[in-house]
Write a protein that binds this DNA or RNA. Sequence first.
DNA 1: CATGAATGAGAATTCATTCAT
DNA 2: CATGAATGAATTCTCATTCAT
Lengths: 191, 191, 191, 191
Amino acid sequence: MTDKNTDKRTALLSATLDLVSNHGFHNAPMAKIAKLADVSAGTIYNYFSNKQDLVDSLYLHIKNEFTNAAFQGYDEEKPVKEGIKLIWFNMIEYKMANPKQANFLSQCEDSQIVSASVREQALEHLQPLLNLWERGQGKGVIRDVSPYLLYAYMVYPLSFFVAVKKRDEFHLTSEMQQHSFEMAWSAITIK
Amino acid sequence: MTDKNTDKRTALLSATLDLVSNHGFHNAPMAKIAKLADVSAGTIYNYFSNKQDLVDSLYLHIKNEFTNAAFQGYDEEKPVKEGIKLIWFNMIEYKMANPKQANFLSQCEDSQIVSASVREQALEHLQPLLNLWERGQGKGVIRDVSPYLLYAYMVYPLSFFVAVKKRDEFHLTSEMQQHSFEMAWSAITIK
Amino acid sequence: MTDKNTDKRTALLSATLDLVSNHGFHNAPMAKIAKLADVSAGTIYNYFSNKQDLVDSLYLHIKNEFTNAAFQGYDEEKPVKEGIKLIWFNMIEYKMANPKQANFLSQCEDSQIVSASVREQALEHLQPLLNLWERGQGKGVIRDVSPYLLYAYMVYPLSFFVAVKKRDEFHLTSEMQQHSFEMAWSAITIK
Amino acid sequence: MTDKNTDKRTALLSATLDLVSNHGFHNAPMAKIAKLADVSAGTIYNYFSNKQDLVDSLYLHIKNEFTNAAFQGYDEEKPVKEGIKLIWFNMIEYKMANPKQANFLSQCEDSQIVSASVREQALEHLQPLLNLWERGQGKGVIRDVSPYLLYAYMVYPLSFFVAVKKRDEFHLTSEMQQHSFEMAWSAITIK
DNA sequence: CATGAATGAGAATTCATTCAT
DNA sequence: CATGAATGAATTCTCATTCAT
């Protein structure tokens, strides 16, 4: 029974992800979500209190998944560069392997579709990276600038790759990933 | 008479910009746009054929404004670094001075609210920067990578500053702008 | 449950019929239809995909009802004159007993309010009459002319009676019906 | 100057006719009419007090044109059959030569697009035919039935030919016209 | 008279949400 | 819990008509 519940919840989140990332937040009406999840429209409200809650929940879910992936295999003992490299490649790998999720996250960053409060919550997940940067700054490796700047040059560009990839303009080969990491690393480190 | 026409058109574009950048594409119904522009709802359709056309027009208008600002004072004789620096600071200056416009552009990049065809049109405006990169690559200054990568590390991060600034989390001081440019420059150049 | 569904659908068709036949196709907005059917405006779209579909469905429904009435008691063994007489009186009886339906059909014949494809569909129902005419022609009773001509003089005039009756200018008594049939019969037969 | 006035009025009537007969009464907005007449939207209201007046005027104009054509060459001295034949062929000729007008009239007969009062006015034009029928009845040639019946079998069927012709289903050849007249004549006369 | 931008009521349609079954 | 018909407010867009120029 619990499984079934979980199944429906998951199916709804998944359907929402599909629709929003493929057709935009508008063009993702509850009726379509329900149909795609193979569930009745009314059932949604047994799992989510309203559409905002559904979207917020999806955002949190994916953000969590993403951060878990990002820190996969990472521990705080690792040398700074190795840690950064691991995290960076984890991130790009997740985004390439999960384009819908990546696209959804991008859409959420710049728009108002996710509640402000929820977006703030999600920031906390990033703490290990903040710590790592701080450690790197202590060691004189990472530039002594606001984490916002570090984020802007290490993490944020990844969204761009997803956006253009989605429009089939561009595909990031693994060689390009290497270059891209070098560029990120050059940006955030002291030469 | 021409003035009046231009006025209303401009007022409508401006109202759309206000609403979309402050409250998102949804929550920007035509009725609100009309009211904010101090115009009757039906009047919108004297200037734009439908909502998509209104949004597309706004996008093109702003993109054009942005690119004009970006290339202000630039000529192709300039040394590579000087040119890049000029363009980069032009861009950040425009975005800081015009947060609504900047925010609107960000929203458009990752979502489906602007027509694909219009977004493609807008790309052409970037040509001078592409040429400059190529020149820099020819001189062995700029990394020999896809312009997508160069864009991702030189231009794209600017959007992030706007996004967080909007949420009052962060303000990019002029010192930070200096650092930020150095980071961008490090990313795209051969050390 | 099925009853309720059918009820609402029927109520909507009936309301549409009322409004269109009494006030014309324009002056039959969806809101009025809904109100007359004692149903919410949005409910219409649970039963019909749009206004065109609603009108088309109504047309098919009535045309079907009309043709059923027309061929009531008819079988292909009947002598030609008897068959024609039966059908003709069935038709006039239906139209007199159902002036709204008759009027609606008239409105549809000459205007663009019903989809071309649907109007074509409806033609098939007339097949038995075409067969009967052919049989009559084979026997040298019915004029050897295009069925369009036969239709024009046997069936089409009935619409006129409905049109004028509706404006209270004229009522077709049963004696007149007799005369009218004789006129139709004279028109389509070889003297 | 008077010519110009007349020109614009005529152009507007003509544009209305075009649009209504080709695309139906709905799909004939004032703006389109104005554009097709090469006139400003506001100008319409210098010639007609509103849309209803425009349509009514068009109806009267065409009905008048039609009746003039119908009685072309007719005088009350003519023998009954000759008179009827002349009028009948005048009518069919007009309708075949002026399909838009014919179609417009058909649309008006069965719908509510023309004011009731105006439709009544138009009936008066038919007086000479009523007189002719009466004369024929006096002579024992024409059936002694209501003029409504005579109209239904002599005049009304012509509308049908126009309706089907418009849909390209059928074309009335001159041989068919002969047959059709014979059918009409058989219908309305005493054998 | 002519223009055509402006109006705003009203049209068709959508959609998040509710609730009886 | 699940259903899905029903709701009605909200949305986009149309259109007859007006009026300042």
